[in-house]
Computed example of a mutant assay.
Amino acid sequence: MADNFALTHPVGVGGTQPFLDAIGEADDLEIEYFASGQLGHQADMPTVIRNGTAEIGVVSAAYAGSNLPLSGVSDLPGFGNDACQVGYALRDVARPGGILYEKELKDLNFRPLWAGSLPSFEVMTSGRHVSLPKDLKGSIIRSTGGTVDRMISGSSGFRVR
């Protein structure tokens, strides 16, 4: 199993570790786990799975947009404010019979084992009130990457380094 995140990352804590724990309870399954990008970067995960380097991989569609353009829908701003609600909706459209599965994942021979999503995007500051993008002028912004980088760069005039 390939993962670009560490087990201490929120994706690891809330997704990967519970999955590995459930697999560990099965008597006839064994997982060799490669964390923190040992088998490839996040953008490489679809290829790592397709070429057989790993049979299971943690894929974040925000980083794999060229391979999974439709799957990134859950990362779009305004899609939902509750990460659980968005995760459940994504799970439903990504399972066999769901539109995302039928239009994108099925042809790749991918089968999601769990789904997750980020809540709405927020800028957090220390001592500065922000209600409009112009309120961030002169700020240094750290992003989680992927879609958030594109949203910050595209809608606010900021550059992400």
Rank of each mutant, 00 (worst) to 15 (best):
G154A: 15
G87R: 07
S155L: 13
V93Q: 04
C84G: 09
T147P: 06
V130T: 01
P119S: 14
S117I: 04
R142E: 09
L100Y: 14
P119A: 13
T147Q: 13
L132M: 10
G87A: 14
R128W: 00
V148I: 15
P133C: 04
G146E: 01
K137E: 12
C84P: 02
N109P: 10
H129I: 05
S117F: 13
K137G: 02
T144G: 10
T125P: 01
H129C: 02
Y88C: 05
T144V: 14
L113N: 15
I140Q: 11
R142H: 06
S131N: 04
L90D: 02
V123H: 05
G145N: 08
P112K: 01
V93D: 08
D92G: 05
T144H: 08
L105N: 03
Y101V: 03
R95V: 11
D107M: 09
F110N: 03
L118W: 13
H129Y: 05
P133G: 02
L136T: 00
G145T: 12
G87W: 06
D149I: 07
M151W: 11
S120H: 12
D149H: 04
P112H: 07
L136K: 01
I140K: 10
G138E: 04
V148C: 12
D135G: 02
M151N: 15
R91C: 06
A94K: 00
K106F: 00
L105S: 10
P119W: 05
L108W: 02
V130H: 04
M124D: 07
L118P: 03
L132S: 08
I141W: 01
P119C: 09
R128E: 15
R111T: 15
S117W: 10
A94L: 09
G98S: 06
R142Y: 07
P133Q: 06
L136C: 01
M124V: 13
D92C: 02
K103D: 14
V93K: 01
Y101S: 07
G146R: 09
L108Q: 10
G116I: 12
L105Q: 01
G145V: 10
G157L: 01
L113C: 08
K106V: 10
D135E: 06
S139T: 09
V148E: 13
L136D: 00
R142T: 13
E102M: 12
L136S: 04
A115T: 15
R91T: 06
S120D: 14
L105M: 07
C84D: 08
R128A: 14
S143A: 07
I152Q: 04
G145P: 13
P133N: 03
R150W: 12
A89R: 03
S126G: 10
E104K: 02
V148P: 08
I141Y: 00
R142A: 14
Y88N: 05
L113E: 11
Q85S: 11
S143I: 01
G97H: 03
E122T: 12
G116W: 14
E104F: 11
E122D: 08
M151F: 13
V93E: 09
P112Y: 12
L136R: 01
L136F: 01
G157S: 06
Y101Q: 10
M151L: 15
V86Y: 05
N109D: 13
E102A: 12
L136H: 05
V93N: 04
G138I: 02
D149M: 06
T144S: 12
G98T: 03
D107F: 09
K106T: 09
G157K: 00
E104R: 09
R150L: 05
